[in-house]
Design a protein around this nucleic acid. Structure first.
Lengths: 224, 224
DNA sequence: ATAAGAGTATGATTAATATCATATTTTCAG
DNA sequence: CTGAAAATATGATATTAATCATACTCTTAT
């Protein structure tokens, strides 16, 4: 079993607020495992009795809508904790988490996390801050969905993917998404998404190379 | 100055987790005041150094979008606390709060609330739960905005207003909203909102009497 | 009481986006 | 390597919703 003490990823999450003793305790109770690309960490409606710490990889947080479409509410990467909301609310998870990459994940049981809450105020406060950050983003997303046209939402999504997850050597976006998934983030039909990408490609704002997407002109993209 | 001890409203919010001593302390540090209909409690971008507890009235939480439209992200009523997110994140508020009614409000300074956080874990946990509830709602709202057509969003909004804020003696919705504001909740143009209301009126699902809205057939509404 | 302004209503038109249809390309299991 | 399935692409069409225009109806302040 890996020692959490040496895990760099821990420093990125609320877990950084834990004391040395608590980290040692954490290392004893956590379980590590891998999730293959396309597999779920958990599914909407499930009871997840703890939180997941992402050591490696990216996953999509999705919700199935009544019309059968999969809306991607957010993407989550290395260093983030999943399932906190559900654990605190004592409710089933509201979103599914599916690996976009092969992932390495640690699971921390609820009893432990709740123990940290009771004994370490700094940790509580960190978790609160994270959740508050998520709430702000979600509120902003509501406004974006309601008020911005598809073209603009797509442009902003591309910039977000670029800035948050970076690019490969050939400058193509590192996150591996199908057009359908990209449409699921933007909140539009797959064909509309493809059409707009193709249009931006013709305008030279982006370049499409197979399923790779290269952002040529971020400035133009931000002005869409 | 009113004693918080006797305030029924307190029981509805996270403040119910405070101890007797803390309530007494609260009564000493809080300031009560009224906000007239149409006036803001605070405005997007402002620094609000504490939280507001709503004793009476309803307010809209809004955000101005780039196109100048006002999106109403949520409505908040008696017993809820405002400004928690901003206080915890140590950021300016993300949304404006504007009174839809004449309101009675108490302001609790940040230093006090943070003190409660440090000394009372039950209170922290209650606040966390509230914020987590808000996060779930916001995520669901993102999916609704992205996936549901305007007609359905309007129908669900009407049911929500009915169930959450109730009706007058004549069965008309108690929340006082203009058509423009209703459109701002639904995320559509004012004319579209009016048109759909008028259509539902003709179908007998709702009844319009001036600006009053009466829900005749909730079942039909939920099937839209 | 009444005029002005805000809010509501409705028609006509345009623009945005979804849907349906079909081809082409890519991926991947056998 | 190869064929089937999945993903991408693009055209045609339908639908939804926004915008523009105009009229009507309430409030409300003087």
């Amino acid at each position: 079993m890996n020692k959490c003490e040496q895990c760099i990823v821990r420093q990125l999450s609320s877990l950084k607020a834990l004391t040395k003793d608590e980290i040692i305790r954490l290392a004893e109770c956590k379980t590590s495992y891998t999730v293959k690309k396309g597999e779920p960490l958990f599914t909407e409606g499930e009871n997840v009795n703890g939180v997941f710490c992402i050591r490696e990889g990216i996953c999509k947080m999705t919700k199935l809508s009544a019309n059968g479409n999969e809306q991607i509410v957010k993407l989550t990467a290395k260093g983030e904790l999943l399932g906190q909301r559900s654990m605190i609310s004592e409710e089933p998870v509201n979103l599914s988490a599916v690996a976009l990459d092969d992932m390495e994940v640690c699971f921390i049981p609820k009893t432990e996390v709740m123990g940290f809450f009771n004994r370490n105020n700094q940790f509580s406060l960190q978790v609160m801050k994270t959740i508050c950050g998520g709430l702000k983003e979600a509120d902003d997303q509501v406004v974006a969905m309601a008020q911005k046209p598809v073209r603009q939402r797509l442009a902003e999504t591309l910039l977000y993917l670029h800035d948050t997850f970076g690019v490969h050597d050939d400058n193509s976006l590192r996150v591996k998404l199908t057009r359908e998934e990209l449409a699921g983030i933007v909140g539009t039909a797959t064909e509309s998404c493809i059409r707009l990408l193709s249009e931006m490609n013709k305008l030279g704002i982006i370049r499409l190379d197979g399923k790779k997407i290269i952002i040529n002109n971020p400035t133009a993209l931000s002005k869409v």
